[in-house]
Design a binder for these strands. Sequence first.
DNA 1: GGTCGTAATGAAAGCGCTTACATTTGTCAA
DNA 2: TTGACAAATGTAAGCGCTTTCATTACGACC
Lengths: 294, 294
Amino acid sequence: MEELGYIPDPVAQALAASRSNVIGVLIPSVTNNVFSATLQGIYEAADDTPYDIQLGNTRYSALKEEMLVRLFLRQRPAGLIISGIDQMPSTRALLERANCPVVQIMEISDDPIDMMIGFSHYEAAKAATQHLIEQGYRKLGFLGARMDPRTQRRLKGFRDAAMAAGVYSEARIRTTQMPSTVTLGSELFAELLGSAPDTDAIFCINDDIALGALFEAQRRRIEIPRQLGLCGFNDFEMMAVANPSITSVRTFRQEMGSQAMKMLVQALDDPTKLTERYVDLGFEIRVRESTSNH
Amino acid sequence: MEELGYIPDPVAQALAASRSNVIGVLIPSVTNNVFSATLQGIYEAADDTPYDIQLGNTRYSALKEEMLVRLFLRQRPAGLIISGIDQMPSTRALLERANCPVVQIMEISDDPIDMMIGFSHYEAAKAATQHLIEQGYRKLGFLGARMDPRTQRRLKGFRDAAMAAGVYSEARIRTTQMPSTVTLGSELFAELLGSAPDTDAIFCINDDIALGALFEAQRRRIEIPRQLGLCGFNDFEMMAVANPSITSVRTFRQEMGSQAMKMLVQALDDPTKLTERYVDLGFEIRVRESTSNH
DNA sequence: GGTCGTAATGAAAGCGCTTACATTTGTCAA
DNA sequence: TTGACAAATGTAAGCGCTTTCATTACGACC
């Protein structure tokens, strides 16, 4: 083999064996840093394995997701990693019937298709909101973009925590279907101040929105954290170095990707004794200057 | 076919026809927003075509790049999109012998492997530096991270422009091999101020570094643009909404991806009458508050 | 009606492997 | 030496298509 420089043909292998060494990964966006970090983890964990990654970009569309699932399944993947828990029933059925391991990532629920690794967006948002309340803030605003099911659950967490403390106000909720950007964060915050200028803290659906709000607050000479508490979500690296540094909910994106991949490889290696099929990675509230209201 | 729900098997098609409908895309990083935006463009342009995208992550390693080229070529791709112009000679040879169209993206050079779309990082950095000089800044610093060949060419552009104006100072160059982050931007800027406190403007290799420098300047109460001119690179959306807004070099990342894909599809459809095989997308200096030194 | 050229249809080989099964070889105890 | 059994090796079918080539059908024309 060495002498002749023989290399097996993966296409012929896949046809004959009716399975490939391709692991399909479905994510809603390649530009969203949350998913790219997860992807990074997946690629890293795939490095020492015989598996290749094939990426599918669902663009936050359940229909596109189903199309991609069909496309992937046709190629007889070794395994599948899919984001979220909000697949259409027909997509779910496809996945359940697929004769390959499937890992759902980013979230957790009590009815996984097969394997699952993620965290509760509801609990995370709830905890962050409770933190704001503990810091003495009472007029809590919520800034949300791209309100997909995942972010809706965050909103629910915010609402439940705020209601429990008796500080919930529908008038301070600002959401949009538009994709999240820093600019949008500034705009949403400006809008919120327009109708509810006495807002004393905001929970942002993600760090981009929080950063936009920070810039807008700076422009308006609103003092953070004295006049306004600010909390983001995801804890991107920049949150710690912003001025002031911004409190955020740390999530374990890269770990999520690498562990998902490892679970898949283990299931492929030895399906019988698979230790973990369901992992809650949790979250951490990283308290920083932007909510240190003393 | 409809009645029986027949769907052709892509694996068998690929084996029999000894070609597939897979277009391989090689990028150095999935987390770097520059590449994810390009990727976004590629996916969009691939949407109405029969081609599927397969992504390879080279992690800024020429060796890994060659391995991935080999891997892809074995699968008989319809075409290949590869980032940059700094392939190893052996990789180049592989690509030249590959019987599929190849598009190099992100940069331009005068010896493309096949097709090419990008812009001159050298010229872009040079123009940005000239802008700083025009604004009256004279003690120009340079902050650079992940100094790969691409960013080295930006440094060269900076140096040549600064030298031409007689304002070049080796002591104000701060570079590192570490991956670029906002935190690193703050640190590099702090370092630069430590050894050259009279620096009156900085050109940052990218927007993350620039944002980090902005935060550090805010902490030190350095007034931008009066005391310090600040210029980034890539013109991410947040540059326009930062406080102050940050001058940056706009590049056409998404267009780069979508046009690369379109070139590929055209070459595949009708290889004879392919109009554009070489595209310089150029750049734009977006002048904002951070360099408006009047 | 017969010839020709063209279009439609049919048949068969083969792409490069995997896998199941048949055959051969090797090993050890009786 | 022989038989039994396991291990190693060899063989052939077939995965689901594409492609080439042979065959048949169809018109048009003289």
